[in-house]
């Protein structure tokens, strides 16, 4: 049976790991990316996501040396995002061992690029990052391109293209640690046929339990909970497993292969 995934999200500012609240610019610095990757690998996490969140804004490419150092720590799948805008960018990331590339601005500006990339690399490695911003009861696609896009229109539009997964983040819930935006997920889970990774708002293991029980989603991403609480990914998975959800609980006594 397919297990629900719990995925730490590392957000990077080009220099260090940071954690935002509601995407505000006064982010808190939370550590070193390579060290964090090493810890999460040792904790046998299901998957890891690394996002250089200001690469596009600052008009720079993701630092391949940093990405390589992160991937070298990981024996689980790794998704990489930030400033990816060309076939060459994707090729460079896959060549150093990335399993998925996470696309955002290019998906808004030129969705045909998704099909082009999927034809070359397979759609399984093309992940879309969709940031939902709720304003006056209506969800919009958050972006820093100056575009006003209704989220339900965008999801309908983008589902015609070829990709393998969606990371669905709530701007309003980001860093607040008060739970996932279940309304958002319930609104879109039926319209999306690919796997969805829900992000934004996790503060304790109950939030994951609630997400996996009340929606059809099988993957959740989180950051703050791993920086600001005592909970590990394994704690979260044991909690959801105890409530009957299929989780991958790694037996720590499994022999280490050297």
């Amino acid at each position: 049976m397919l297990k629900c995934r719990v995925i730490p999200i590392l957000t990077f500012n080009g220099f260090a790991l940071i954690k935002t609240k509601q995407f505000a610019t006064n982010a808190r610095m939370v550590g070193n990316a390579v060290q964090a990757a090493r810890v999460f690998n040792a904790r046998n996490v299901d998957e890891l996501v690394f996002l250089d969140v200001y690469a596009s804004d600052q008009n720079r490419k993701i630092n391949l040396n940093v990405v390589r150092s992160i991937i070298n720590e990981c024996y689980m799948p790794v998704g990489i995002g930030g400033g990816i805008s060309s076939i060459e960018d994707i090729h460079n990331l896959l060549a150093i061992g990335a399993d998925k590339v996470i696309l955002k601005n290019v998906m808004i500006k030129n969705p045909n690029f998704l099909n082009k990339a999927a034809n070359i690399f397979g759609n399984q490695c093309i992940t879309l990052s969709i940031d939902a911003h709720k304003v006056d009861g209506e969800y919009y696609l958050y972006n820093r391109l100056g575009k006003t896009i209704l989220l339900r229109d965008f999801i309908q539009h983008i589902s015609k293209y070829n990709f393998g997964e969606i990371i669905l983040n709530s701007v309003n819930h980001d860093g607040m640690m008060e739970g996932f935006d279940l309304d958002l997920i319930k609104m879109f889970e039926k319209n999306i046929k690919v796997p969805i990774v829900v992000v934004g708002g996790a503060g304790n293991p109950e939030h994951f339990k609630q997400l996996f029980s009340e929606t059809s989603v099988e993957a959740a991403g989180a950051a703050s909970i791993f920086y600001f609480t005592q909970y590990t990914p394994q704690d979260i998975k044991i909690s959801s497993s105890n409530s009957g959800k299929p989780m991958r609980i790694v037996n720590q006594s499994y022999p280490q292969v050297n």
Partner: peptide
């Protein structure tokens, strides 16, 4: 119908 595609993640 209820299963998402690709088959993505950890399975025993």
């Amino acid at each position: 119908d209820h299963l998402r595609i690709p088959h993505l993640g950890w399975n025993n």
